[in-house]
């Protein structure tokens, strides 16, 4: 071995490494703003909360509102729909998680955990199919509601039940439930 290979790092090695590290840190600090500018901006975040007056909704009716650019389904369910949803064994569901942002992340997908209120009349969820993002049918009276009486996504055939839980088809998750609450008897705040 030559003397060169074994000798201690020289001042030149140090300068070389220090310069390289400095340039890398500089490049990264410029790269991040360029990447981050594409993330949702202040106006997108500002639309994060809406309040909806639901006093006009009868049982068995739904409305669709826009929240963060996405449709949100608000449905006031009939007794029959509530019963259908409650009867299901949670262990038999493709997705056993409540997907409810008002609860802890490991809550199970029981009907109680999906509904907004204690009477389980109100269902509020993001109307975006968890497969590839289409809006499922089932909000209007004449719509196809799928094999489980809830919602049906025509894009690739996902069936959701009356609690918005996935039952059949390519989607893997239940419809997402956004942070929501009744601020008074008539108004639901979403976000």
């Amino acid at each position: 071995m030559s003397k060169k290979d074994t000798k201690e790092p020289s001042r030149r090695d140090f300068i070389f490494l220090a310069t390289g590290a400095f340039a890398a840190a500089g490049a990264a600090s410029v790269a991040w703003p360029i990447v981050d500018q594409m993330n949702p901006d202040a106006t997108a975040l500002a639309l994060s909360k809406i309040e909806v007056d639901v006093s006009q909704i009868e049982r068995g009716q739904s409305i669709t509102v826009k929240w963060r650019g996405k449709p949100v389904f608000i449905r006031r369910r009939t007794d029959e729909e509530i019963q259908m949803a409650s009867r299901v064994d949670v262990n038999s569901l493709p997705d056993g998680n409540a997907r409810n942002n008002n609860l802890t992340a490991d809550s199970s997908a029981t009907d109680e955990n999906r509904a907004l209120d204690d009477d389980k009349e109100w269902l509020v969820m993001v109307g975006v199919c968890t497969h590839l993002g289409c809006v499922p049918k089932g909000q209007s009276l004449g719509d196809a509601k799928g094999d489980y009486g809830g919602w049906y996504c025509p894009c690739h055939g996902s069936h959701y039940d009356t609690a918005g839980r996935i039952r059949k088809g390519p989607a893997a998750k239940n419809l997402d439930i956004p942070v929501a609450e009744f601020v008074n008897d008539n108004v639901i705040r979403i976000g």
Binding site: M38, P40, R68, G69, H131, G133
Partner: peptide, 26 residues
């Protein structure tokens, strides 16, 4: 919508990446 949602299948960071592509929530 359908094509950008393909990225949401990436484990863990999927949603973050999709929202980054959208620059919003849709």
């Amino acid at each position: 919508t359908v094509i950008t949602n393909l990225f949401s299948v990436i484990p863990v960071v999927g949603t973050t990446i999709t929202e980054w592509l959208w620059g919003g929530f849709a």
